[in-house]
Simulated scan of single mutants.
Amino acid sequence: MHALIVVAHPDPASLTHAVSARIAEGISASSPQHSFELADLAAEGFDPRFTQPDIALLLKKGEPLPEVAAEHARLNRADALVLVYPVYWWSFPGLLKGWIDRVFTQGWAYDEDADGKLHKKLQWLKVHLIAIGGANQRTYARHGYFGAMKTQIDHGIFGYCGASVSTSELLLPSDAGFPASQLDAARTIGERIFASRAVIREEEVET
């Protein structure tokens, strides 16, 4: 089985990158048959801007640009999608949100028929979300920030497309043993990504 690990942080020395590396280690350690691809959006220079060609694609009046088609191909090769990102203003960084905006397109991630019925096209994809925050657990709990993030990201994005969110973790500096405990947790997440589950591809899902 194959995982696409998407990391959105401009600093390769960041904790975000260290966590993504440990997740990759865990995947490799779990079985020699499992593999991963690391998509470093900042290093690759992915353009998060939603422009006129993206609108044309949304309206079914154009084809995906090469960079969008390349991301579709990477995701089509994957059995699991792992997103590792710092929390900016209680959500994704702009780079990762732009990746979602441009890549999770109508016709590929979801579609609507002439009667307006929604067809969720990513039912084969398992999603693992690892957010790295700067506030403490008490702040997230007191204001309901993590619950709000789950509503807008887990349900609002991936649920809309039919993808199943298997992991939704929030790693914080207030966690006991920070940062070593977070790196240990990341490796464990990687080891468990493909544990005891069958992969259901889109063509196997009844519509």
Rank of each mutant, 00 (worst) to 15 (best):
V19E: 09
S20C: 11
S20P: 12
S20Y: 11
R22N: 08
R22S: 06
R22P: 05
R22Y: 06
I23H: 12
I23D: 14
A24V: 13
E25F: 05
E25L: 09
E25R: 14
G26D: 11
S28P: 05
S28R: 15
A29D: 10
P32H: 07
P32Q: 06
Q33N: 12
Q33A: 13
Q33F: 03
H34C: 08
H34R: 14
H34Y: 13
S35I: 04
F36A: 14
E37G: 12
E37P: 03
E37Y: 11
L38W: 11
L38P: 04
L38C: 09
L38A: 12
L38M: 14
A39W: 13
A39H: 12
A39G: 10
A39Y: 07
A39C: 14
D40L: 01
D40Y: 01
D40F: 00
L41N: 13
L41G: 06
L41W: 08
A42R: 04
A43T: 01
E44Y: 00
E44A: 11
G45W: 08
F46R: 10
F46N: 05
F46M: 05
D47E: 06
F50S: 01
T51P: 04
P53F: 00
D54T: 00
I55A: 11
I55D: 02
I55P: 09
I55C: 08
A56D: 15
A56R: 14
A56H: 13
L57D: 02
L57A: 00
L57N: 12
L58K: 12
L58N: 05
L58E: 11
L59N: 10
K60Q: 14
K61Q: 15
K61N: 09
K61E: 15
G62K: 09
G62Q: 06
E63G: 03
P64A: 03
P64G: 01
L65H: 07
L65E: 15
P66T: 10
V68L: 01
A69L: 15
A70W: 07
A70G: 03
A70C: 03
E71N: 13
E71Y: 03
H72P: 00
H72G: 02
H72V: 00
A73M: 03
A73S: 14
R74P: 00
L75M: 15
L75H: 14
L75T: 07
R77N: 14
R77D: 08
A78V: 00
A78K: 10
D79A: 13
A80N: 15
A80D: 11
L81F: 06
V82G: 09
V84W: 10
V84Q: 10
V84F: 12
V84R: 13
Y85N: 09
Y85I: 00
P86C: 03
W89Y: 05
W89T: 03
W90Y: 15
W90N: 05
S91N: 11
P93S: 09
P93I: 06
G94R: 09
G94M: 04
L95D: 05
L96T: 07
G98M: 02
G98C: 00
W99R: 08
I100G: 07
I100Y: 11
I100E: 15
I100R: 07
D101L: 01
D101Y: 10
D101C: 01
R102D: 01
R102I: 02
R102E: 04
R102C: 00
F104L: 14
T105G: 08
T105E: 07
Q106F: 09
G107D: 08
G107K: 09
W108L: 07
W108P: 06
Y110R: 10
Y110A: 08
D111R: 08
D111L: 07
D111W: 04
